[in-house]
């Protein structure tokens, strides 16, 4: 009796943490879905309306932005990671790049928007410098508040994030694998195709997912760049649900939030399956 009581008592220790999560994560999550599925007077169900017309465009815009910035971030971030491993003999390079990457990967929000406004805005320093060498960004239609402008800003944290994910994975490639592959007759290309890339695949896939989700949830930077008006989904949600104002379309806001959760969930599960499959040799 005493034993069983004690073993049950043990679990009480986890209660504060579990209750905390339930109240501040699970409950709000459930609330979003409940409110999203609540039928209101409108003819269309909020969950349907949230992905129709202008709102659908909003989602597509957000997803495209995330995917494009993640893809470019993946590519350039990987190049940087390979570069610092290739240039290993320059000692300071590695700690410098990795150190700054961890700073930049955490950057975001308002200050980052300010930095890019002062660099690539209409009156930006970089814009001006580029014009001096006959690269007229503004004349070509580039605006820091447009799609490609926001992609550029997002790259500021996407590239370093990918670098940070990939450097340890590349470090994990043992020199002897390369040497054995060579001794067995593999060319440099064959080594990358048959050995290095398959071993790096889980890190690359996981990184890509992290980058997409990272950009998908980002909000502050785009908000500050465009002074509040933007087509990004989070900005739309804010329009319906900020503060305690009642816009009459609160359900639509919740529905969009619910779609965000669902999409992120699909992404995570999808990628998780891919990662699992690509690293079945690890389990």
């Amino acid at each position: 009796m005493a034993g069983s009581f004690k073993s049950r008592a043990r679990h009480f220790i986890y209660l504060p943490y579990l209750i905390f999560l339930s109240v501040f994560l699970v409950w709000p999550g459930i609330y979003v879905f409940r409110a999203a599925f609540e039928k209101n007077s409108a003819e269309r169900h909020p969950m349907v309306e949230a992905v129709t017309g202008q709102y659908r465009a909003s989602f597509i815009y957000s997803l495209e932005l995330s995917a494009v910035s993640a893809a470019i971030g993946l590519f350039i971030g990987s190049l940087v990671a390979i570069a610092i491993v290739r240039l290993e003999n320059v000692r300071v390079l590695r700690s410098l790049v990795v150190g700054y990457s961890s700073v930049a990967a955490n950057m975001g929000g308002i200050p980052l928007a300010f930095a890019f406004l002062s660099a690539f805005g209409m009156q930006g320093l970089a814009t001006r410098l580029l014009r001096e060498i006959n690269i007229d960004l503004i004349g070509w239609g580039f605006r820091i508040t447009d799609f490609w402008g926001i992609v550029l800003v997002y790259l500021y944290f996407q590239i370093p994030l990918m670098t940070l994910i990939l450097v340890p994975a590349i470090d994990g490639l043992r020199r002897t694998w390369h040497e054995v592959a060579q001794s067995l007759g593999a060319t440099a290309n064959q080594y990358w195709r048959f050995v290095a890339l398959p071993i790096l695949t889980p890190a690359l896939l996981g990184g890509f997912l992290l980058l997409i989700a990272n950009a998908f949830a980002a909000y502050a930077t785009a908000f500050a760049l465009s002074s509040g008006g933007s087509r990004l989904v989070p900005v739309q949600i804010r329009f319906f649900l900020q503060g305690e104002t009642i816009t009459g379309k609160t359900n639509l806001g919740y529905a969009m939030a619910a779609w965000m959760v669902l999409l992120t969930l699909v992404l995570v599960i999808g990628f998780q399956t891919l990662v699992r499959r690509s690293e079945r040799w690890r389990q």
Binding site: L25, W27, P28, G29, I30, Y31, V32, F216, A217, Y219, V233, P234, I237, R238, L241, G253, Y254, A257, A258, M260, V261, T264
Partner: peptide, 8 residues
């Protein structure tokens, strides 16, 4: 995402 968390 933070936005969904806070509205919930």
């Amino acid at each position: 995402p933070a936005i969904a968390l806070v509205v919930g």
